[in-house]
Nucleic acid binder design. Sequence first.
RNA 1: GCCGAAGUGGUGAAAUUGGCAAACACGCAGCACUCAAAAUGCUGUGGGAGCAAUCCCUUGUGGGUUCAAGUCCCACCUUCGGCACCA
Length: 799
Amino acid sequence: MKYEPKNFEKKWQEIWEKENAFKTDETGAKPKCYILDMFPYPSGVGLHVGHFKGYVATDILSRLRRMQGYNVLHPMGWDAFGLPAENYAIRTGTHPEIITKENVKNIKRQMKDAGLSFDWSREIDTTDPDYYKWTQFIFLKMFEKGLAYEANMPINWCPSCKTGLANEEVVNGECERCGTPVEQRNIRQWVLKITKYADRLLDDLEGLDWPEKIKEMQKNWIGRSEGGEIIFKVDGKDVKIFTTRPDTLFGCTYIVLAPENKLVLEFKDRISNWDEVEEYLSKTKLKTERERISEVKDKTGVELLGIKAINPINGKEIPVFVADYVLAHYGTGAVMAVPAHDERDYEFANKFNLEIIEVIKGGDVSKEAYIGEGALINSDDFNGLSSNVAKERIIEFLEEKGLAKKQINYKLRDWIFSRQRYWGEPIPLIHCPKCGIVPVPFRELPLILPKVESYEPTGTGESPLANIDEWVNVKCPICNEDAKRETNTMPQWAGSCWYYLRFIDPKNKKEIVNKKDEEHFMPVDLYVGGAEHAVLHLLYARFWHKFLYDINVVSEKEPFKKLRNVGLILAGDGQKMSKSKGNTVSSEDVINEYGVDALRVYEMFMGPFFDAIAWNTQGLKGVYRFLNRLWDFCYKCKDNNFESSKDILREENVLIKKVKEDLEGMKFNTAISAFMEFLNFAEEKENETSGRTIENVLRIFYPFAPHMTEELWKVFQNENYIHEENFPNYDEALIQKDVMELVVQINGKVRDKIEVSANLSKEELEKIALNSEKVIKWIEGKEIKKMIFIPPKLISIVI
RNA sequence: GCCGAAGUGGUGAAAUUGGCAAACACGCAGCACUCAAAAUGCUGUGGGAGCAAUCCCUUGUGGGUUCAAGUCCCACCUUCGGCACCA
């Protein structure tokens, strides 16, 4: 029989489905294993070969764990709210729900064609009212606990998407989705207090088995800095500043307020050059985030003439500036400037001819700012102290006078949570003129997203929902007077913040997730997806999870115990695969020509799982050749009704060990090369290879190539299915060789390799080494200084 | 600028964590099969010297530690990711 994957791959997919082969047990007798993929947005263009890499990896591990006796939870669903479907709706007038349903159907078929072993009975869709009922529920719980608040503040606004954005969605001053430069706008927003969780989000990273890179990115994003808040008196008013370097306070020669800082207006009457100041303020207002970033090197600002600040440490009068290099949204929106020890202040001071006082020894402040730490100088009583000590002492000293306190600041800002768009979860709140903001009662959830005439964003700060009078106008649930619904919707990220919980108990009508099952299945044992969500989804989901922990819905502090990032499959030209570039490789084409198993094995063999590697059809053909050879070899040996030779038995056990270990480390590429090595070795020993050896090889190859191995298993006339088999164990004793190669090095260079029996003692081996002709040639007439024996098989001679 | 990861054949890469560098595969060359091609199989394939056995060189660059370095240490170069006026 020839290897013809077309003849049986579909068949096996149908059998698995019929047999419910991958259904997760409801009972908890077996140990659990939760293996999760980041669920996709059901895009209209479907999946290409690149999308499968992560899914194949988790599929392999899920199949492995099932063989190892685990109750595996391996589900799939759809993160289906989002802009593409909405933009399509705007263009065509088709409701996003319709196009989303079609896309889901298509991608689900593609996944099934790829033989992925999901438990489809747990499929979820974030746009399903039965699902988003609970997204709304969690939001209301947050509202109840004061974690969701309404704010009128300047936020990032995308003029093209016509919606506000979260900080995390702005990349280099541009909208993450469409690349349009982001503007600042004052818009009424719903905001989630993620900052309240900053410390826990930071501290709990410690115990996670995640890529260091991702943890580092989250740490940087949260950006905790410890320092102090110090009060400068200005014209009788307190100006608070935040600094991480209180030790440099004696070097502070001016202070700077951010243009947006409200204090500037409070000083208006005392400022003699108000016209100039006002002009500067309006100029900065017009600048985009982008322009401000690009002007980093050229500092601008205006002194507020007529007022002075008092440096609290020495009572000195110093000038006050307003300058846009100080950010309104970080700290207090005001800084103390120490030009001698801060690059930005140094630059600014030079431009405006301000005093530079060195207070930390260690650099040459006539040339550049010295930002390192060191001993204090020019600092009165604090002279000679080290920065570290002085930081504490100076704050303590001022604290007694009520002029300072210790303070911790974060770069992380609260999460702008409302979107002025249509295709998202409606925020279940009601604005009542009498009662204020009133939550929609829980029993009325889900608050269904109504049909609209036009999906076009309004640009007014309200979503298209605002145009539906009969939906917007409601009675207040408390006083029953006329009230209006909140018309903003939730952002794309809302549904994915807790979906991993719903897979555990997807049909529960009464609660988010059944507590007992949650305790059984959580946390996620392995979470696989792209690195692009490092600070978006992964930070948001951790935040929600911690909240759910606080309200006793979940029992673990962290949702994802182990995270691994799948490396991209690039197009043959080394570029990212994308429909618009026309360089995608269709999985359908590959499956038609070479079969699913070849696609799976090739994607795992390409290179390290975590690396980005370019697609190469020749490589795929190589894998296909290998599958053919393995297939033929299995046929040849299947009826060999004898014990395998010692050599074969050894290689068989070496293979089992290697594959098991490599799978644990997700080193799929070397696991597959081990199969190839085994076949290269065994092919010549066809009549030494027993049918029993072949069965074991099939068992361990099953997770990689499930269709082919199921088929061969049946050919062997086994009564059961291979997916019901156990993963075989190896016997360490059988791995030992009785002959081995002794390597002899002289002065670090390999000079001879000698076949020796494996059970010789150190002394015997040394004797053999010294008697070797080649070795004698090198050591003749030389003095042997040292002989080092490295078990089991290396001797190093120093002459 | 700061943080992080990485530099190994023509290509994707491997190397039990300090112990035979280049496993496995792709590609290429030669041969076999074929009228021919494809497919398949066999042989060879880091560089240099030699008929040969054999020897020398080689993991971005330069230095160091060690009997032994792709792996550890120091300096530098390059590439890719992330952050970026965060006080």
